[in-house]
């Protein structure tokens, strides 16, 4: 597989940035990271795989990540990398989209695989479409290809001996005038499902929020992370959105996935199919999940979960 000459990466959080730096290493000869944050975070990007960092400094109190779009656009227009990798948060989707419009490119979203051929123009990117029903393979036709990449597509690496340069570009006043009046942190937990070794997921089959207590207890016993389907997070709001598995949520690759009361909708299963072993418990014998599980049990999770807890694994 040939390599691209220049791959640029940026993310609005440290853990996806680390993954993208590793992805950049896999795909390109030279990796450049654009980092907004402490100088320490700029140095981290080098240890994670960047050869060069454009350090935008620490974020000003009254600014958003999005306010640095024109600064980043200027750097990209000058250095013309073949590929820009961006994490898939709501903020960075704004930046990626504006950069695409400025630079005359498209954005390939939710990329799951990259192929680079013998020549520079041979980049092909696959991404999920139709809610997980299909994977679309696309070839970028613009000089710069822009792709957003979800958590877990690349695995972060660390090399503490890595050396690289840090450059501080001047700030370019942004053209998109929005005034940030207030910002508050949502009451959410941080969870990294993508790197969990074991995951217990719940679907609407749980019936009530109170049922979650026993699920958390079982997960603790199994040393597993707790996850859910999109409706449990977004419609019922029983769990934070960070915990839902699916095309637009987390893509997991655990050793074991235990799915409780999950019917097996394609959107969810696309996010879960990276699991080595899938075990499903569902009341409905016709639930599609049984067709996609290694072991299935037709039954009441309120009976099965307490029984499982009595065992040592």
């Amino acid at each position: 597989m040939g390599l691209l000459k220049n791959v640029w990466v940026f993310a609005d959080k440290a853990s996806p940035l680390a993954e993208l730096c590793a992805g950049g290493r896999q795909l390109g000869e030279k990796v450049t990271a654009v980092v907004l944050g402490t100088e320490e975070s700029a140095q981290q990007a080098i240890k994670r795989g960047a050869d060069q960092v454009y350090w935008l400094g620490s974020k000003a109190e009254d600014k958003m990540f999005e306010d640095y779009t024109c600064t980043i656009a200027g750097l990209l227009a000058k250095h013309r990398p073949e590929l820009l990798l961006v994490n898939a948060s709501k903020r960075t989707k704004v930046v990626a989209g504006r950069l695409a419009a400025i630079l005359g490119a498209s954005v390939i979203t939710n990329a799951i695989e990259f192929r680079t051929g013998e020549h520079n123009g041979d980049l092909q990117v696959s991404h999920i479409v139709y809610g997980g029903l299909a994977v679309r393979l696309e070839k970028p036709l613009s000089d710069i290809a822009i792709a957003t990449v979800g958590n877990g597509v690349f695995r972060a690496e660390t090399d503490s001996n890595r050396q690289g340069s840090i450059i501080e570009p001047p700030f370019v006043e942004d053209s998109c005038k929005l005034r940030l009046l207030e910002s508050r942190v949502k009451d959410t937990e941080s969870v990294n499902l993508a790197s969990a070794a074991r995951v217990v997921g719940v679907g609407r089959g749980i019936g009530k929020q109170e049922g979650l207590a026993m699920v958390y207890e079982l997960a603790k016993k199994l040393k597993a992370e707790v996850a859910c389907t999109r409706p449990v997070a977004e419609e019922e709001k029983w769990m934070s959105p960070e915990r839902y598995i699916g095309v637009s949520g987390a893509m997991i690759k655990p050793d074991m996935y235990l799915a409780l009361g999950i019917s097996g909708q394609i959107q969810h299963m696309t996010g879960a199919k990276g699991a080595r072993v899938i075990i499903a418990v569902n009341k409905d014998i016709n639930a599609p999940i049984f067709e996609q599980a290694d072991y299935g049990l037709v039954g009441d999770m309120y009976k099965v979960v307490p029984a499982l807890m009595k065992n040592q694994f």
Partner: peptide
């Protein structure tokens, strides 16, 4: 600015069932 090469359903992962 992108060309679609193919749109295919993913290959099924073999499960014990």
């Amino acid at each position: 600015k992108v060309e679609t090469i193919s749109t295919l359903a993913p290959e099924q992962v073999e499960r014990n069932k």
